[in-house]
């Protein structure tokens, strides 16, 4: 008789990839290029009394993004839109308030692909070609991919006209868009003006920035040996948890990993919004130059992607089982770096 498991239940899978190296090679920037739609960025600066203005401002200045409500997806295949914004500069977009495991979602990647993740009914009524989702055994979710930058994708061609017609049948969504113009003299708000002229409700969104100082903190040394404990400590510190060592041990047995050093001031910075990988790149460059200018034990950067985006790492399909986070932590000192990449499982559900 088939008996069910009653004790050893396996937790949902997730993958962790750790990469180490020397800063000189600039390989630490590679991971940033793999995740395009970023939501939360946080930085921990130990032994810092005053945070340089340029670190605070990298993700505040020129990082506006726009929220456009009730947009039909046929607007995104309008040839004027594609020529003005997708072909030039770097354009990324995703739908919000839609869950990737229940509803229909869309996103636009920097290489000009419009991707839709649709339920079975929506896909069947849409009528465009797509592939079934890799994660489900039954065909209950489909991914449709439209190459906006293809030479054949213009008005007059059958493929273009048909796609535009069929996209009219999809329901309207609320989108976040982030556009980096090709030249500095073009204002990024021209994309907002474009949608505003079409009478859509456009809202400017600014990244939410917070900074916090904590005093007399035991900070572990950055060594390559105990990476998991180090990353865990970063989490404990960022969330202002009890870092251990106090008298109360009933609640928590956590202790700061050894060896550690006590610093007078440790700064925590956090930005939330919608950031492209280029913007995160700039922040990392600023952090590396800060590290070179001043003697610091280490600096950490944590970036978290969106839970409900169609594609995650390396433009591969993303899913949400009970958690849909993609994120990475980069820790650097003056010579070495470590990248701790956390990914959702790639296995299909059995």
């Amino acid at each position: 008789m088939l008996s069910p498991e009653i004790w050893n239940f396996k937790a949902p899978d997730s993958l962790v990839k750790v990469e180490k190296g020397n800063i000189v090679n600039n390989n630490c920037f590679n991971t940033i290029q793999k995740l395009h739609h970023n939501h939360l960025v946080s930085v921990v600066l130990p032994d810092t009394l005053r945070v340089p203005q340029n670190i605070c401002e990298t993700l505040k200045n020129d990082c506006e993004y726009y929220k456009i409500s009730n947009v039909g997806l046929d607007e995104l295949v309008n040839i004027n839109f594609i020529n003005a914004f997708v072909r030039k500069g770097i354009f990324i977009s995703l739908s919000i308030n839609e869950r990737i495991d229940c509803d229909d979602c869309m996103c636009i990647t920097p290489n000009g692909f419009l991707l839709l993740s649709l339920t079975k009914e929506t896909y069947e009524s849409l009528g465009l070609e797509g592939t079934p989702s890799h994660y489900y055994n039954t065909k209950q979710r489909y991914v449709v991919s439209i190459n906006l930058l293809s030479n054949h994708f213009k008005p007059g061609k059958k493929n273009y006209d048909r796609t535009k017609d069929r996209l009219l049948t999809l329901k309207k969504m609320t989108l976040l868009i982030n556009w980096e113009p090709p030249h500095l003299d073009i204002c990024p708000s021209s994309v907002a003006k474009y949608f505003d002229d079409l009478k859509f409700d456009v809202q400017v969104c600014l990244p939410d920035f917070q900074m916090r100082t904590n005093y007399t903190i035991k900070v572990p040394n950055f060594t390559m040996d105990n990476i998991h404990e180090f990353v865990e400590w970063l989490g404990m510190f960022s969330l202002e948890s009890d870092l251990g060592g106090g008298g109360e041990s009933y609640l928590s047995t956590y202790e700061t990993p050894q060896p550690y050093q006590e610093y007078g001031q440790v700064k925590f910075l956090q930005w939330r919004g919608f950031f492209s990988s280029q913007q995160i790149n700039k922040l990392l460059e600023v952090l590396i130059s800060h590290l070179k200018d001043e003697e610091k034990p280490w600096i950490s950067l944590y970036v978290q992607g969106f839970s409900d985006v169609v594609v995650g790492w390396d433009l591969q399909e993303h899913h949400y089982y009970t958690n849909g986070d993609n994120g990475y932590v980069i820790v650097l000192n003056s010579e070495d770096y470590m990248v701790y990449q956390h990914m959702c499982s790639k296995k299909s559900y059995k």
Binding site: S14, L40, E232, L239, S307
Partner: peptide, 10 residues
């Protein structure tokens, strides 16, 4: 499984 991701939920 990553504590830092509890910082925020998109």
């Amino acid at each position: 499984p990553l504590l830092l991701s509890l910082l925020g939920d998109s």
